[in-house]
Simulated scan of single mutants.
Amino acid sequence: MTTTFTGRQAFITGASSGIGKALVSAFLATGYQVDGIDCAPSAFMAETRYRHHQADVTEFTALDAIFEQAEYGSENNLLINCAGTREICPVSELSLSLWERVFAVNVTASFIAGRAFCQQLVRHGVPGNVINIASVSGMMGEPNRTAYVASKHAVLGLTKQLAIEFGAQEIRVNAIAPGVIRTPLTEPYYHDPNQLNKIKRGQFIPQLGEPEDVAEAALYLSSPKARFITGSTLVMDGGWTIGKDL
């Protein structure tokens, strides 16, 4: 049975590494209670304001139950759907099972978590926000990533629909679309001169994206400073999507 407390609560999927880990760190540092959801253990297990749910987000019944049984804050509540996966293969080699797995993690889990979270906020009459971690791949096509690209386009559509459905209850829903961010998943790129050069040529500023950049954007979108922003996508990609070097 859910309860409420005086304070702020964040739920973060994909919480154990990369962008998710940076998000946990940022929201703990700003005084949130944080529930992390990830298949892997967390580096924050000893933190008194952190609770870890070691679970696969595609176990949808269990995912829904986390929100059914959780505590919610009277000041602010936040869900960040950060768990994600991808494939790298030509569409001719993309199996139906892999396509379904990518959509289950990237889209269906975000829908299940987003719906359950928003319903609980309405039930308790408390404020909150949802932030879906999308990608620039949700705004453009890329070779050999058919399921990933299609799923991230779907995440942007889901963001808009949740914003419409729950806006009257003062729940804001937005997305962040990062470009290439240095995480354990992309770390090999930074040790391959050709790949690293491709990343740099695709941007229009010299800085490379770090997980903390995404965390800072999430802190903004979840704050009162962003109170008039909903259904939007904040693109942070070093200029990746604004044009190309001819």
Rank of each mutant, 00 (worst) to 15 (best):
F44R: 00
I181Q: 06
Q69R: 14
R115T: 05
Q120C: 05
G138Q: 06
E187L: 09
T4S: 14
D237S: 04
A22Q: 11
S42E: 12
G243A: 12
E59T: 12
R172Q: 10
V122E: 12
M45A: 15
A134Y: 03
S25P: 00
R227S: 14
Q203W: 05
R227W: 03
D64W: 11
G238C: 11
G125E: 11
G179F: 12
E71T: 13
L246I: 10
I229P: 00
F111R: 03
V155H: 06
C118R: 02
T58R: 15
M236P: 01
S222A: 15
G157Q: 01
L162R: 02
L208C: 08
E216W: 02
W99Q: 05
A150D: 02
F228H: 10
I199W: 11
P90L: 09
L156I: 13
V149G: 02
V155N: 08
A62V: 06
V126L: 01
D64P: 00
I131G: 04
P193G: 04
I229C: 03
S74G: 01
I176R: 07
F27C: 12
D192L: 06
E216Q: 15
T4N: 12
F166R: 02
D245C: 06
C89F: 00
K244V: 06
R145C: 07
G14T: 05
F60P: 03
H53L: 07
Q120M: 14
I171D: 04
I80C: 07
T146M: 05
G31N: 09
E165K: 06
S92E: 15
G138Y: 06
S16A: 15
Q161K: 03
D213S: 07
F117R: 09
S92G: 04
A22W: 11
Y148L: 08
I80R: 07
I171Q: 04
T183A: 08
N144Q: 13
R49Q: 15
V105Y: 04
